[in-house]
């Protein structure tokens, strides 16, 4: 976060390379403004956690980054490529940016292994054997290699979400986006998914995570973003964010979710 952390820039372990940049991004659904003048920049290797009340525009923002939603004003530049209506650019960016959804969105008519090999084979034109080898590698990483030949409907929610993460990783993305990855899970399954995400963060993956899991945020985040009412209210380092937030709205939100 260029502007927000000038003091200790020298001590920052992150590189200087900015991989995601949103400049004055605006988006409307009809007359409803979903994003208002959003400015964010993410460096390679940075872990950003986005939080805020529901309807504040968090999901819309990260869905704009791989153009599942189109913004109407401003610029979004991912990995040096600006997102426009150019289909080639969009497909190029999508193959570099992995995304994990709240509702898993595994393909129910395919076995787990085929869910994982599909995109590498179709998009990266990888031979089947190589794709399967990579798929098994990532299934082992998320600790469910034994589920490879089951259908998604036969797995628990936590297992499905871990498969979804593995599916994204099979494309060997440079950036991972997580859109409330644990919100649809039963409480006892949240940890197994978060563990996988923490591990991923430890390996230096550039991540942008929309979540209400503040424990996770405290553990992995380099940067916290708080959104409310379609705009970014506060961007801060987690130690400042959780102990001494600048904005009153951030304080109120943290009080609400940390003290229930």
């Amino acid at each position: 976060m260029n502007e927000q952390q000038p003091a200790d820039a020298a001590a920052d372990p992150l590189g200087d390379e900015t991989v995601i940049q949103l400049i004055d991004v605006n988006k409307w659904y009809g007359n409803f403004q979903a994003l208002r003048d959003v400015n964010v920049s993410v460096k390679r290797g940075e872990r950003v956690v986005v939080c805020g009340p529901s309807g504040s525009g968090k999901s819309t923002m990260i869905r704009c980054i791989n153009r599942l939603e189109a913004h109407q004003k401003g610029q979004i530049i991912v990995d040096g490529i600006e997102l426009t209506d150019n289909l080639k650019n969009i497909e190029a960016i999508r193959s570099e940016v992995g995304m994990v959804f709240q509702s898993f969105n595994l393909f129910p008519h395919m076995q787990v292994i085929d869910n994982l090999t599909l995109a590498p084979m179709l998009v990266r034109k990888m031979p089947k054997a190589d794709a399967e080898a990579i798929a098994m590698k990532y299934l082992e990483r998320v600790q469910i290699p034994e589920q490879a030949y089951k259908y998604p409907g036969q797995l628990s929610g936590g297992q499905q979400q871990r498969v979804a993460i593995a599916r994204s990783l099979c494309m060997q993305p440079r950036i991972m986006l997580f859109d409330e990855p644990t919100s649809a899970l039963d409480p006892e399954m949240i940890k197994e998914v978060l563990d996988v995400m923490v591990e991923l963060a430890d390996e230096g993956m550039t991540m942008m995570v929309v979540t209400h899991e503040m424990g996770f945020a405290k553990t992995v985040a380099d940067t916290m973003i708080f959104m409310d009412d379609a705009e970014i209210v506060e961007i801060a380092k987690p130690d400042v964010f959780f102990t001494n937030p600048e904005s009153e709205r951030t304080q109120l939100f943290l009080n609400q979710i940390l003290t229930h």
């Binding site: 791989n66 999508r94 959804f101 509702s103 969105n105 599909l118 998009v123 979804a164 494309m171």
Partner: peptide
Amino acid sequence: GQIEAAEALGLSYWQLMRR
């Protein structure tokens, strides 16, 4: 969500329709 997941993986329109 099925279409979004396929799009997010970089599948083209015809790939995601067919598969």
